[in-house]
């Protein structure tokens, strides 16, 4: 039903030009900015424009839409990016961009490749995704960044262009998201950052890595105990003398926790943890070395 040929802008029923169309209540940043400030963002844009085999003309329309802030809330889930984009209609359009996820054994190879390098794992645990990871993944025979046909944008708008400018805008904004958090890419490919990290840890440590259960160190979780009758059976045997408590340190110590950092998603501020632990050490030291109270003034008999 649309007229043959292309329109330069707007919807088929609208004669507005790009220049004077202003989506209501949406403003973007500077009009000529580029996308992708970090290596990852740029790598994504590169993949988008050159490798994904998308129509460059349509893509470029998406750039201006993205620049003017037409894209609202954007969610990245495994294999799927979803966003609401404000077009000329009152109700925003829904855009989905699909990217194939890695299969399970693909991920195994990817994680193996990453885990092999001590520096890589260290960086990941530190919250960084070094670009070398791409080559690690390539060594496993896979491509972290999307290749031909791997980016599939869809939009609820009537425009038949592929991608329509709304979808194209969302594609560009993924670069922004990657700038903020490169792990978004891994998430797209199917694993959240937490998943990746625990998988990496599990590789270096066999053993219960389940984060669902209580920390094994918490004593309350050991519920076996000992049969009471047996415990009392040996009650009359002579017991060794009570050991004297170990001397407190010369001064309060540094909590080991100082060196461990909760990730941002946990919502726990490491600085606060450190401060709490340090204060606890001080408090304990004072209690352990404090002198007992003054002897009270006993009633003095008339001796």
């Amino acid at each position: 039903m649309s007229p043959a040929g292309r329109r330069t802008s707007g919807d088929w029923w609208s004669d507005e030009t790009e220049e004077n169309h202003r989506p209501p209540a949406a403003r973007g940043r500077g009009s000529r900015r580029g996308f992708g400030q970090t290596w990852w963002g740029r790598a994504w844009v590169d993949a988008l424009e050159h490798r994904a085999a998308l129509d460059p003309g349509r893509l470029s329309r998406g750039r201006s839409y993205a620049r003017r802030g037409a894209v609202g809330q954007m969610d990245v889930a495994p294999g799927l990016v979803m966003a609401a984009v404000q077009g000329s209609r009152a109700v925003p359009y829904t855009v989905t961009v699909r990217v194939p996820r890695f299969r399970r054994d693909d991920w195994e190879r990817v994680l193996d490749a990453i885990a092999a390098q001590i520096g890589r794992t260290a960086a990941l645990l530190d919250g960084e995704l070094p670009p070398e990871v791409v080559s690690d993944v390539a060594a496993a025979g896979l491509d972290l960044l999307p290749g031909a046909g791997e980016i599939q944008p869809r939009c609820s708008c009537p425009d038949w262009g592929d991608p329509c400018k709304h979808a194209a805008a969302v594609c560009y904004l993924v670069a922004d998201a990657l700038d903020k958090d490169p792990f978004t890419l891994l998430r797209l490919r199917g694993k959240s950052r937490a998943d990746v990290l625990s998988a990496l840890r599990a590789r270096r440590t066999p053993g219960p890595g389940s984060s669902a259960g209580p920390s094994a160190g918490l004593a309350g979780s050991s519920a076996e105990g000992v049969v009471a009758r047996d415990a009392y059976a040996g009650a009359s045997e002579p017991r060794p003398e009570l050991p004297a408590p170990p001397l407190p340190p010369e001064r309060p110590g540094h909590p080991v926790t100082v060196a461990f950092d909760p990730p941002p998603e946990s919502g726990i501020d490491p600085e606060v943890l450190r401060a709490l632990a340090t204060a606890a050490a001080h408090r304990a030291w004072q209690l352990a070395t404090a002198t007992p109270g003054d002897p009270d003034h006993e009633g003095e008999a008339d001796a």
């Binding site: 209580p214 920390s215 160190g217 918490l218 408590p245 170990p246 001397l247 407190p248 340190p249 309060p252 110590g253 540094h254 909590p255 080991v256 926790t257 461990f260 726990i268 943890l273 632990a277 340090t278 606890a280 050490a281 408090r283 304990a284 030291w285 209690l287 352990a288």
Partner: peptide, 12 residues
């Protein structure tokens, strides 16, 4: 108390 005074405490 001595253990905590040494800083040997951790979140769990």
């Amino acid at each position: 108390l001595g253990l905590v005074a040494h800083g040997k405490l951790a979140p769990a």
